[in-house]
Design a protein around this nucleic acid. Structure first.
Lengths: 172, 172
DNA sequence: CCATGAGAGTTGGAATTTCAAACCCACACA
DNA sequence: TGTGTGGGTTTGAAATTCCAACTCTCATGG
């Protein structure tokens, strides 16, 4: 999979360049495989445990396990034990992982416009109690207040019925 | 791809949603398959013919043909004849396709930082003859002039040796 | 007239990946 | 003692991908 697992050296003396050297391609090589970005989305949402990620992405368990391992190896996520005996881990984003926010934002914005009827998730600015303002995701600027909004002031509003930030709501 | 391309019904009468409704997932469903974004990158670079895209992305020809067809169907690219007899086409971006620029920018920026040693492609502001200023891709703002730069003022500087915007330079 | 070549794909297997479902294991709870 | 939960593996079949070779149409050159 990874051409140079360690970096710095190529085992293959491949003098021919097979494709354009490109950061987009390099990025996709690390995070562009199926399920990878959806797993990262879930971790952004705070769903850091394996089963949650499986449920919310719909990925096959084995694929997700493989992807998370690859992302760990790529330095995008980090596996942190939250229990010894039995060993249990949760996945956190590294700085590189958190730095993928603009990628997800761009995809979200595009998808909102071109890939869905009505946006299932909306990010808003929680100005005060009861006050929820529209947010420009690209600039993290509140359209009402005009000010920049940090993560604290941010509300994720899941509009899709039956779902919230953590996953499907159980309606036993 | 399509959740159930053939079988119109599930054996289980379970109207359960399999995964979180999400614009990111919807977007990836349309443009997240292998080679798709790289093909779009090439079209952005002005390489609109099949062979060019094949050469520059390194994608297998059959995959690329399939991907381009899917992208056309998704309304992201458009196939335009540039010759009858023999029928020849080139691929152009639709509005939806052009709207993917922020996605590619985000991936490029991330890749520049986390996936390559040194950026193989740099976007710059062509202020005047000989004047090339750094550009902040996220905001399309020139770091020197402080002004917004439209597509006309934009230079794509390919730094990878042996490559330019059109593809590998022939050195014979 | 014939050969060569470009452009844009198809085609035919073989090699990989992916999938879904079942299984496993260690523990908690009741 | 039995059931449930969390976090995965394993398995074998199904779907995708890869690659090289092939096709078809025309243009060009000798």
């Amino acid at each position: 999979m990874t051409p140079n697992p360690k970096q710095g050296e190529k085992s293959v003396p491949h003098p021919e360049v097979p494709a354009r050297p490109c950061s987009v391609a390099a990025a996709l090589h690390l995070v562009g495989e199926r399920w990878a970005l959806l797993a990262i989305r879930e971790i952004f949402y705070g769903n850091q445990r394996f089963d949650r990620i499986v449920r919310n992405t719909g990925a096959p368990r084995d694929r997700l396990a493989a992807r998370l391992r690859a992302l760990e190896e790529a330095g995008v996520v980090e596996r942190r034990a939250y229990s010894e005996r039995p060993p249990r881990f949760e996945y956190h984003l590294t700085e590189a992982g958190r730095d993928l926010a603009p990628v997800l934002h761009a995809l979200l914005t595009w998808g909102d416009r071109w890939a869905v009827d009505t946006p299932p998730v909306v990010f808003r600015h929680r100005g005060g109690p009861g006050a929820e303002h529209d947010l420009d995701l690209a600039s993290s600027t509140c359209r009402t207040c005009g000010e920049e909004v940090g993560p604290e002031g941010l509300t994720i509003e899941v509009r899709a019925p039956g779902w919230d930030r953590a996953g499907p709501v159980e309606d036993s």
